[in-house]
Design a protein around this nucleic acid. Structure first.
Length: 574
RNA sequence: CUGGGUGUAGCGCAGUUUGGUUAGCGUGUUGGGUUUGGAACCCAAAGGUCGUAGGUUCAAACCCUACCACCCAGACCA
């Protein structure tokens, strides 16, 4: 590509409304422009990257045996009513009507459409397993789009859906997809982790997320420092190896005026927050629809955080988890929120494992402005049911049994699920089995955020001068930069020859062929755009028979003799 | 949705407190000239419904009212 025929839309200054690095650099390098909140136009440079990522995903998906299809963005409401999600989905689902006032939606995902297709087209177990995928635009009316392309409303996703006669077959495809995803992220050269994940409202039995590690990530990932174990903090099991010690103190009630938080309380008493517990009151499940939801107490160690996802899975606790209103606590427990404790509570009590091994601890006295010290389970307060309801913290023992946990931020770029029969049941998607009986197919679904990968790759690869693309997804592999093009016939001739040769050999080259462009501008632009390899052709070098090479991450240039430049470039990409 | 912030030239901003002639600066753009190994210099020029609508006033970018858009935090979210 000649720069004279290519929109180089670089910006010298950082646009004011971009906060995270990838968003800033995507705007500055001229990859995207914002149309309105959460909607972006892909400029020529950005689209090149998009295509490279999509092609890698496509190649690996094809390699895995999946078949590419393309489904509509606009979907009829009937299908969503059939699966029940027309009601379940909130305002995130953008609903529209056609000229006949027939209801449609913009697809945030395609389970319904694919299930409808497969139930119509597939009739025998002999056709299974089958895995269909598409690379296509999705629309989710996010409450708050942010971080540019990272969480936009419209985005491009690779989504695949597999169909199986039984769970074993599903597991096999799931494992193949897990490996395929590893292949994809390896090819793009991202620092990523596959982590155990929550299946969320989509249900099913198994799920992994793929996270690119970056400080701007919105998810927290816990890892073992000595094994491969990795899990989303939402899901990571919190283990305690401590044993409860025998009681040594007597129970005492002390006045603690104004001490309503753990940090205030522990500095007031000059103790560690790890010697305290906090009691959180949440809503339970009502026995009848018209009955009030009962209150349930959750007790965790003072320095720990409640994990809502774990808590709402416990028997008798309402999902989604919600804290009890203060009025109900005061009314029914006769105590304000800063002085709660497990002592004498006439409601169900769940105690986190780490809180359950404490002895001689401090907790609220259920009496405004009073706390108890020297508290011991069983002797002073009911034992409660011991469960895992807290977030893991750095230094916790890894649940895999090896090493301790570290926590890093991750950007979710892929997610694979075993759906089971949730959609095939609802939509009656069956095939005949070996006995000629109709059998509901088991399903898996597998997503990759194509556009999000681009932002994630930048978050992981940039410096003060701009983006540093991994070779596999760079918009151009090589920048060819002439010096004094308008004056030097030798430079012109050499560049044209090299440009033709690179094209002939199939390299993506951006030839900075604008006659009057200044060197500094060309260097700054190609660095900002993140072109991984750069060749400079100037009279000075040509006189010595050399061309200058510099890799985007290199600190020094190399002078390569002209007749070895092609083999030299070949070795760069081998 | 709640809270905070911002809307003035393509981009980054000043001017608004205390209303007053022709709305500025940097950068970018166009034309001309001098330059040419890291965003160069000189000259000239184009480019503005001051977010929108209404109001106050002799006079509004500036004061008042309503609305809209975008950004940030939270909540929410396969």
């Amino acid at each position: 590509m000649r720069a004279s025929h290519f929109l180089i839309a670089t910006l010298k200054e950082t646009p004011a409304d971009a906060e995270v690095v990838s968003h800033q650099l995507m705007l500055r390098a001229g990859l995207i422009r914002q149309l309105t909140s959460g909607l972006y136009t892909w400029l020529p440079l950005g689209l090149r990257v998009l295509h490279k990522v999509a092609n890698i995903v496509r190649e690996e998906m094809n390699q895995s045996g999946a078949q590419e299809i393309l489904m509509p963005v606009v979907q009829p409401a009937e299908l969503w009513q059939e699966s029940g999600r027309w009601q379940q989905y909130g305002p995130e689902l953008l609903r529209i009507e056609d000229r006949h006032q027939r209801p449609f939606c913009l697809g945030p995902t395609h389970e319904e459409v694919i299930t409808d297709l497969v139930r119509n087209e597939m009739s025998s177990y002999k056709q299974l397993p089958a895995n269909f995928y598409q690379i296509q635009t999705k629309f989710r009316d996010e409450i708050r789009p942010r971080f540019g392309i990272m969480r936009s409303r419209e985005f491009i996703m690779k989504d695949a859906y597999s169909f199986h006669i039984d769970h074993n077959c599903l597991q096999e495809t799931y494992d193949v997809m897990h490996q395929t995803y590893c292949n994809i992220f390896n090819r793009i050269q991202l620092d990523y982790r596959s982590v155990l994940a929550d299946t969320g409202s989509i249900g099913g039995s198994g799920s992994h997320e793929f996270h690119v590690l970056a400080s701007s990530g919105e998810d927290d990932i816990a890892f073992s420092d000595t094994s491969d174990y990795a899990a989303n903090v939402e899901l990571a099991e919190a283990i305690t190896l401590d044993r409860r010690q025998p009681a040594t103190q007597a129970l005492a009630e002390i006045e603690t005026p104004g001490q309503y938080t753990i940090s205030h309380l522990s500095s007031f008493l000059n103790i560690s927050p790890t010697q305290t517990v906090k009691t959180l009151i949440v809503l339970g499940e009502a026995e009848d629809e018209d009955q009030k939801q009962p209150l349930v107490a959750l007790v965790i160690r003072g320095d720990h955080e409640l994990n809502a996802l774990k808590a709402e899975k416990l028997a008798g606790i309402a999902s989604p988890l919600s804290f009890a209103p203060e009025e109900r606590i005061e009314e029914e427990l006769h105590c304000k929120i800063g002085s709660l404790g497990p002592k004498g509570l006439a409601i169900n009590i769940y105690v986190d494992r780490s809180a359950a091994v404490l002895s001689d601890f401090v907790c609220g006295a259920n009496k405004h402005n009073y706390h108890l010290t020297g508290v011991n389970w069983g002797r002073d307060v009911p034992e409660g049911e011991v469960v895992d309801i807290r977030n893991v913290v750095v230094g916790d023992p890894s649940p895999c049994g090896s090493g301790t946990l570290e926590i890093k931020c991750g950007i979710e770029v892929g997610h694979i699920f075993q759906l089971g029969t949730k959609y095939s049941d609802a939509m009656n998607a069956t095939v005949l089995d070996e006995n000629g009986k109709a059998k509901t197919m088991a399903m898996g679904c597998y997503g990759i955020g194509i556009t999000r990968i681009i932002a994630a790759a930048i978050e992981q690869n940039y410096d003060d001068n701009g983006i540093i693309w991994p070779d596999a997804i760079a918009p151009f592999q090589i920048a060819l930069i002439p010096i004094n093009l308008h004056k030097s016939a030798a430079v012109n001739e050499q560049c044209e020859a090299l440009y033709k040769e690179f094209q002939h050999q199939g390299y993506d080259v951006i030839y900075m062929d604008e006659a009057k462009a200044r060197l500094g501008v060309m260097l700054a632009d190609t660095e900002l755009m993140g072109i991984p390899h750069r060749l400079i052709v100037g009279d000075r070098g040509l006189e010595n028979g050399t061309i200058e090479y510099k890799g985007r991450r290199d600190t020094e240039s190399q002078h390569i003799t002209i007749d070895t430049i092609i083999p030299f470039v070949t070795t760069l990409f081998s």
